[in-house]
Design a protein around this nucleic acid. Structure first.
Lengths: 127, 127
DNA sequence: CAGAATCCTATATGATACTG
DNA sequence: CAGTATCATATAGGATTCTG
């Protein structure tokens, strides 16, 4: 979901907030960052299923939205740490309630055991 | 965002809940339905910007997720009413907090005054 | 380690026209 | 009125490979 302009109407605020945390990963990233500052690799390990590319992309988006702060250390090997900004922290109640609702309705949700999906067949370009 | 299988991990609940209300419109629709049962046209008028097609699609998705109930009256002209299910009502605190957060951070959000976007130029197929 | 680059597919979202 | 049907585009999301 790309950045949108929100008109001043009722419901706008809902849309605006949702815009910050939607997509498949942003909410989950924010949730994990509530445990404190974490390195790229740590975050990644906590989110099996996400690809490196998506984690990078989403983190950059969150950074641009001022929800997350990215700190790069000039070391070898590289170290990059992510943490919530103050604005990001302010979303805690929101994330918490998303989590709470999800938990209390888990039986009703498709939170199945198996991500049993066939890997997408990619057509190999003619070599 | 298509229906996903959620693995049983922390953060799963966040993802699962988000999955029900994400996209550009679902949260807003749920918000508007909190005012009570509404006809298709009413909803549409409350959401300038949404197309008929999207409103239909999102409503059907919400219906499938058991958040919204659709009632069709056998009348002419047709009358279709939408209202929140019990499960949908249970999302009220979630929607409310999304709205509240959005409002209290409105200054920081791109909630600009003008949806000043050029209509997409469509290439007319050769007549 | 933390990514960037490249390629690819599937969905979301829209505009527009048509209809029971 | 409350949709369908069609067509078009943009973005989300992912697989894989390469690199400072």
């Amino acid at each position: 979901m790309k950045r949108r302009n929100f008109a001043r109407r009722p419901g706008c605020s809902v849309e605006a907030t949702l815009d910050l945390i939607d997509g498949k990963w942003k909410g989950v990233i924010l949730y994990h960052l509530q445990s404190g500052t974490q390195r790229f690799g740590e975050l990644r390990r906590r989110m099996p299923g996400i690809t490196q590319r998506m984690l990078t992309k989403q983190l950059r988006a969150l950074e641009e939205d001022k929800l997350v702060i990215r700190k790069v250390y000039a070391e070898v090997p590289p170290r990059v740490e992510y943490c919530l900004s103050e604005l990001g922290e302010s979303l805690k109640p929101v994330i918490d309630i998303l989590k709470a609702w999800g938990e209390s309705h888990q039986r009703l949700l498709p939170c199945g055991p198996a991500p049993e999906v066939e890997p997408v067949k990619r057509r190999k370009r003619a070599a």
